[in-house]
């Protein structure tokens, strides 16, 4: 169900393989289902199908979120349980570290297309049966089974000042770089490792998406002698717009909420606080600083950011798909 597409005018709703056409050219109800039998239960059926999912999500995610928002207006420590209005939010936006964390969110959003394009391209090549595609499909997933703590630990060793990467650079005459100790570089390294560790998951989603791609279109393009970039641009991207949209959103969520393990192991938010993300900030305030209410306020801000960025993305992508 694309957001904003509020009017599925036929039943069943229009399928839209190329979702650019969503909402237009309805297939006029091919043979309406029989009305007689169990009209009422038929009418209730969609609600019954949706009920378990909705109930669980509302009770166990949205309701606690509301409680957390409520909590963010109370104080910590001596002011525990007292209403403090917007104090926590004011403190947050005055805190340089939280501002750094928000700035890094901006950086992540900018890097997002790269993080989506990499698994997308690789999946395309695998789908086009590049030599060795079976092997790649298997091993590209390997990093995804390792927990971030392990991945971070290994890259710590590889990127250490006296580690193998600097040794290799040194052997070709390039000076050593403090990959994780230089505040201008460290964030990129962490993001790079995160992409490396998670692209296997997006790859699986892309490959599942290719299952829905009409191979006849691709064959036609090949017979016409279209170049690879053209095939990607004119056949694969429009055909997979829904998958791409999905990977965009999940990658963003992954970047904003599951880089904690890597941050913790690779940089601990440093050097000089340059690799803070809101998630890490929340963790530190909650655990190390014992400021749960302030952490709740930061959580609320993170939630709002994610909703806004996510919706904007979907909007942009839909527009792009329509224009393509």
């Amino acid at each position: 169900m694309p957001i904003g597409n509020v009017h599925p005018s036929v039943r069943p709703a229009q399928a839209g393989r190329t979702d650019g056409a969503a909402g237009s050219a309805p297939h006029r109800g091919v043979g309406r289902p029989r009305r007689a039998r169990g009209l009422r239960s038929e009418r209730l059926a969609p609600y019954i199908l949706v009920a378990p999912a909705i109930l669980i999500i509302v009770v166990m995610r949205l309701y606690p979120l509301l409680l957390g928002v409520n909590f963010s207006f109370t104080g910590d420590g001596d002011r525990n349980g007292m209403a403090v209005g917007l104090d926590n939010y004011l403190e947050l936006f005055r805190a340089p570290l939280f501002r750094t964390a928000l700035g890094n969110v901006g950086l992540l959003v900018l890097l997002l297309p790269v993080a989506v394009a990499i698994p997308g391209l690789l999946a395309t090549f695998i789908y086009l049966r590049v030599p060795g595609h079976r092997v790649y499909r298997g091993v590209y997933f390997f990093p995804a089974v390792l927990s971030p703590v392990i991945v971070g630990g290994i890259f710590n060793l590889l990127l250490a000042f006296d580690g193998p990467l600097n040794a290799a650079l040194g052997s070709v005459g390039i000076g050593a770089v403090d990959w994780l100790g230089d505040p201008d570089i460290a964030m990129f390294m962490v993001v790079g490792v995160h992409v490396w560790a998670t692209f296997g998951m997006s790859l699986v989603v892309f490959l599942a998406g290719f299952a829905t791609l009409d191979s006849a279109l691709l064959d036609a393009a090949r017979v016409d002698g279209a170049s690879l970039p053209k095939v990607i641009w004119h056949v694969i991207i429009p055909g997979l717009s829904r998958t791409i949209q999905f990977v965009f959103v999940t990658t963003m969520i992954g970047m904003l909420t599951s880089m904690f393990g890597l941050l913790y192991v690779m940089t601990s938010g440093g050097p000089e606080g340059s690799t803070y993300l809101p998630e890490y900030y929340i963790w530190i305030q909650q655990g190390q600083m014992n400021r749960p209410a302030l952490a709740s306020a930061a959580s609320t801000v993170l939630f709002v950011i994610m909703i806004v960025v996510g919706l904007l993305q979907i909007k942009l992508l839909k527009r792009a798909a329509r224009e393509a």
Partner: peptide
Amino acid sequence: STALFLGCLAGLFVPFQVIMVPL
């Protein structure tokens, strides 16, 4: 249906840390 779908989507944007303590 749209409202219900949006409700599900909203759940996607709630990191676990955010709701850990109330949950």
